[in-house]
Amino acid sequence: MFHLTLHLADDALILGHRNSEWTGHGPNLEQDIAISNIALDQIGQARNFYQYAAELYNANKDAYTNIISSPAFLQVIGSIDEDDLAYLRDAMEFRNHLLVELNKGDWAVTITRQFFMSLYQQLLYTDLQYSADKRLAAIAEKSLKEVNYHVRWSGEWVIRLGDGTEESHHRMETAIDQLWPYVGELFIPADFQLEAAASGLLKNPEYYREPWLEKTRAAFEQAGLMIPAPNWYQKGGKQGIHTEHLGYLLAEMQYLQRSHPGAQW
């Protein structure tokens, strides 16, 4: 459960962080504001999950000591909080999908990734609302409203760019080719997801593969885009084996917390 909560939090934080890199640099003012809103939603979701994860951790520290062993984290005295989880874990202790940590790329990459992730989160949170765990269910219910909007917004952009100009169509194809190898990981269960499925917290993610593909196909059809042939999928994020990108992201994100141990901000 702790693992699962952390995984959900990490996905939301890392994607929110990537999207926030657009703030101040969007293709125009209106879209700058739109992508920042999505970043804010995701960071808000991450905070809810991290706060819950911190409670779980504090309630049963001994059970989790082998899960997080970064020296900075172990130096925390007393109870841990959301920021300790976000800022003091090392890259190998992050449980997010590889897809969310990739660089933000151009607007086509950002949109395509957002669409892929939002569709996945929509399916996931819809079920999680009815989870046996009431806290996760409550967070999912609140987050789902946001995610539904993200699906709508990113889906429209997928169609708009796919069916826009020659250049935008080409950029979408490139983005899809780049991201597709990372999509499979969404549906390959990690151990903690199998455990969660066994204890009735959440379905095995394999279950979402078909509905996800169906919705993606529908949007791509309108956009005049093709779903790539099944390919070898990159995976490992949920086991802590990441791409090179996450290390840089964390080095930047965590540096203040780490250079001033124990400080309040």
């Binding site: 926030s20 700058d32 920042s36 804010l40 992201l249 994100m253 203040l256 917390q257």
Partner: peptide, 22 residues
């Protein structure tokens, strides 16, 4: 934004910079 030292600070800073766009 990418270096804000806590999640709360990160969120408020994004919201603030976003307000400026508005």
């Amino acid at each position: 934004i990418t270096r804000a030292p806590s999640l709360r600070r990160k969120a408020t800073l994004i919201a603030k910079v976003q307000d400026e766009a508005g």
